[in-house]
Design a protein around this nucleic acid. Structure first.
Length: 511
RNA sequence: GGCGCAUUCGUAUAUCGGCUAGUACUCAAGAUUUUCAUUCUUGCAAGAGGGGUUCGACUCCCCUAUGCGCUACCA
């Protein structure tokens, strides 16, 4: 009997959620949805020193933007709360006591300074079975002294008493069995008296157990401590309900080596965060995918393929398809380098698939920075956007490619003038104006085109020169959508005005 | 240093012992277009090295190398 799927994404609010964390959240979400399970968001704030204000809100907003839905969490509530570890002190205290009473853990009084000194003194010092009896703890000290120390309010930590010489097997759904010997594990700190909070390891195991988590899906950086977690489940007597483990390959820097880090974004010029982040301490601003013009589904789709594939050649996949086809069997074992070019391509594909009207809405705020949006209808903006969207990667590129739809050119690209503006051009443009004056309106692009083509052919003019000069006066340079699609949108009056102005302003290249 | 994980074109990956090693991004060339872009076609480009096992290995095993991760009173 398979148990109900319950997974959790458990970030610590120490800063903005980075893209690797987003992928972990995504895989958890895909797996949960696929099995009709529950997605839990748990805030792991057991390190009071590293707490960053705003980080939790950021996590919520980022997941929401990406469409990664949460079923249980601080904001959503649920029957297994609280979902913030700093609010679960009473729970942890109870389980720490249980371990202590069972002789599975002990109290240690060594100060951080003393520990540091030990590490300096002895190379490869490890707090474990071979050294613990020479340290200041409840195993080595007489009971009265321990009690006296506690009564005096001395700070202490609780350490897990690891039995040496055991082979611990971690079963991982992506990697298979990973075996390590317990002797290489140290007596991990489980609880800190100073702030009355557990460390990650204890809180993690207790919460996963209490919240009935069925699958722990997390980054590969946790693999080395997974044996410790197995031992902890055992010590609590929870081995039979221990969750399945899944350790995801890391997201690597695009250039050389190492885990993708916060710094890489600025260094390489692309975002590593879903949303823009303003660091409350330094005031530093890190760019985000949303602010850079990425569509959330493009980010999700791209991220889904970094470490997983559907087993065939599909690349563009909707969230529903991802949910349906996701599987650990097709997760890769090795780290994936982040390819920013591919991310851009994904965004381009999603932009192309977005309705013009929807794209226009995204474009309006940018458009408003340059012109008064109110003077254009939604239909007009949508049509303008639709005619140039195949040449952009980001919404913000829309302005540079479609500006001429909203503002007559004030400058004319010198390179194009040089190539297309000939001595006879003003004369030709004059004829063109006269011809266009005779057209009722430009609403029928094909008809306008036919008229102009007939004129060009009838006079045996050079098509390229005429059309490009025409384009130059209307657009300001020799590029853009089909000429008569542009005139259709601009209308007769504006088009002719632009040609006239071009004839006045553009000078014959001198050379 | 110790322990662990990994290793197919520049990048992401397919291949569950039969490969003329496929696909996508990037890049290049050509076609298309009144321009630019799109689109289409073609091309460049890979199994870290060495041993095994096997009729046959990219696929399984071992060693080496390399990369990464962990080694905190951080997660």
């Amino acid at each position: 009997m398979e148990r109900k799927v319950r997974v959790r994404f458990a970030p610590s609010p120490t800063g903005p959620l980075h893209i690797g964390g987003v992928r972990t959240a995504l895989y958890n979400y895909l797996f949960a949805r696929q099995h009709g399970g529950t997605m839990i968001l748990r805030i792991e704030d057991t390190d009071s020193n590293r707490f960053v204000p705003g980080a939790e809100a950021y996590i919520n907003e980022a997941l929401h933007w990406l469409g990664i839905g949460i079923d249980e969490g601080v904001a959503e509530g649920g029957e297994y709360g609280p979902y913030k570890q700093s609010e679960r002190r009473d729970i942890y205290r109870k389980y720490v006591k249980q371990l202590l009473d069972d002789g599975k853990a002990y109290i240690a009084f060594d100060t951080p300074e003393e520990l540091e000194a030990k590490r300096q003194e002895i190379k490869n010092f490890q707090y474990d079975a071979s050294t613990r009896m020479s340290m200041r703890n409840s195993l080595a000290l007489p009971a009265e002294e321990v009690q006296a120390l506690i009564d005096a309010g001395t700070n202490y930590v609780v350490r897990f008493k690891i039995e040496p010489g055991r082979n611990v097997v971690v079963h991982d759904l992506i990697r298979g069995d990973v075996t390590i010997n317990s002797s290489i594990l140290d007596d991990k700190v489980l609880y800190k008296r100073a702030d009355d909070l557990p460390t990650y390891h204890l809180a993690n195991i207790v919460d996963d157990h209490l919240m009935e988590v069925s699958h722990v899906i997390r980054g590969e950086e946790w693999l080395p401590s997974a044996p410790l977690h197995v031992l902890l489940y055992e010590a609590f007597g929870w081995a039979d309900t221990q969750p399945e483990f899944v350790h995801l390959p890391l997201l690597l820097k695009p250039d050389g080596k190492g885990k993708l880090s916060k710094r890489d974004g600025d260094r390489l010029g692309f975002p590593v965060f879903p949303l823009e982040w303003h660091d409350p301490k330094s005031g530093e601003i890190s760019s985000g995918y949303r602010e850079s013009g990425y569509l959330p589904h493009a980010v999700v789709n791209f991220l889904s393929l970094l470490g997983w594939n559907p087993g065939d050649d599909r690349e563009i996949m909707s969230m529903d398809e991802l949910i349906r086809d996701f599987s650990f069997a097709h997760c890769s074992k090795s780290g994936a380098k982040f390819d920013f070019e591919k991310a851009k391509w994904f965004n381009h594909e999603y932009l192309m698939a977005t309705e013009d009207a929807a794209l226009a809405e995204l474009f309006k705020p940018i458009l408003a920075e340059h012109v008064d949006v109110a003077q254009f209808t939604d239909e007009y903006i949508a049509a303008a956007v639709g005619s140039v969207k195949n040449r952009i990667n980001f919404v913000k590129d829309l302005w540079t490619n479609a500006a001429f739809f909203f503002k007559a050119p004030v400058e004319y690209a010198p390179k194009d003038v040089k190539k297309r503006w000939k001595e006879e051009t003003p004369q030709l443009m004059g004829e063109l104006i006269a011809l266009l004056e005779g057209v009722d309106n430009f609403a029928d692009a094909a008809a306008t085109e036919a008229t102009v083509m007939a004129w060009i052919k009838g006079n045996e003019y050079h098509m390229g020169n005429v059309m490009n000069a025409f384009r130059l006066t209307v657009v300001g340079e020799c590029k853009g959508p089909h000429m008569f699609e542009i005139t259709r949108l601009l209308g007769k009056e504006e088009t002719i005005a632009r040609i006239k102005r071009g004839v006045e302003v553009i000078k014959l290249p001198t050379e």
